Amino acid sequence: MVVKKLVVYIALLAATAHAGAVSCIGVPKGVSLDGETGDVLVEEISPMRWARLCSIRNDANGITASVCKGYLSALLAAQASGRSVMTYTRSTVECGAHPPWQFLQGFYFLTLLN
């Protein structure tokens, strides 16, 4: 009985740890900067369209401007080389359901893949 309770408890912890986390993978296309705000946008990280990630001008979407500049560099490198990136969010909104032109809800990490 104790073992069954322990297994259920561990399963619940694992589900909680992954709840509200969405990762999107794709080759970024159309990496752009908003000239008025300094916001970094990506036309496509399939199936996500026109995601606003952060700002190189000031802290936005929970990300500092200096970190955003690093993200911009990684996105441009990926776009130029045809490599994929993975975005990580603390959100339950699936990649294709993200509203275009809005900040990517809960965005906190970007990985440049192979």
Results as ranks from 00 to 15, higher is better:
50 W>D: 05
29 K>Q: 15
15 A>N: 07
48 M>R: 02
45 I>V: 13
19 A>Y: 14
39 D>S: 13
23 S>F: 10
37 T>N: 06
42 V>S: 00
48 M>D: 01
38 G>P: 11
46 S>A: 05
37 T>L: 12
16 T>D: 07
33 L>V: 13
39 D>C: 10
20 G>Y: 04
30 G>P: 12
30 G>V: 10
33 L>C: 10
35 G>R: 13
46 S>E: 10
46 S>M: 08
45 I>R: 00
34 D>E: 15
18 H>L: 14
15 A>G: 09
33 L>P: 10
50 W>K: 01
47 P>L: 02
24 C>I: 15
22 V>Q: 11
13 L>S: 03
20 G>Q: 04
51 A>H: 01
28 P>I: 01
34 D>H: 09
21 A>I: 14
17 A>T: 07
14 A>S: 09
51 A>Y: 02
24 C>F: 09
14 A>M: 10
19 A>R: 11
41 L>N: 06
26 G>D: 07
32 S>C: 09
40 V>M: 02
15 A>E: 09
49 R>K: 14
49 R>D: 02
16 T>R: 09
43 E>V: 01
24 C>E: 11
43 E>G: 13
47 P>A: 00
24 C>W: 07
34 D>K: 07
49 R>N: 03
21 A>C: 11
39 D>Y: 07
42 V>R: 00
49 R>I: 04
29 K>D: 13
47 P>M: 02
23 S>Q: 13
16 T>L: 12
20 G>K: 04
28 P>V: 00
51 A>R: 03
26 G>L: 04
36 E>V: 14
28 P>S: 05
25 I>S: 12
35 G>W: 10
35 G>C: 09
45 I>F: 01
46 S>D: 13
20 G>T: 07
47 P>N: 01
43 E>T: 05
49 R>S: 02
31 V>D: 08
37 T>Q: 06
45 I>Q: 00
19 A>S: 12
44 E>S: 06
34 D>Y: 06
28 P>A: 03
26 G>M: 05
33 L>Y: 07
21 A>E: 15
31 V>A: 03
30 G>Q: 14
16 T>P: 01
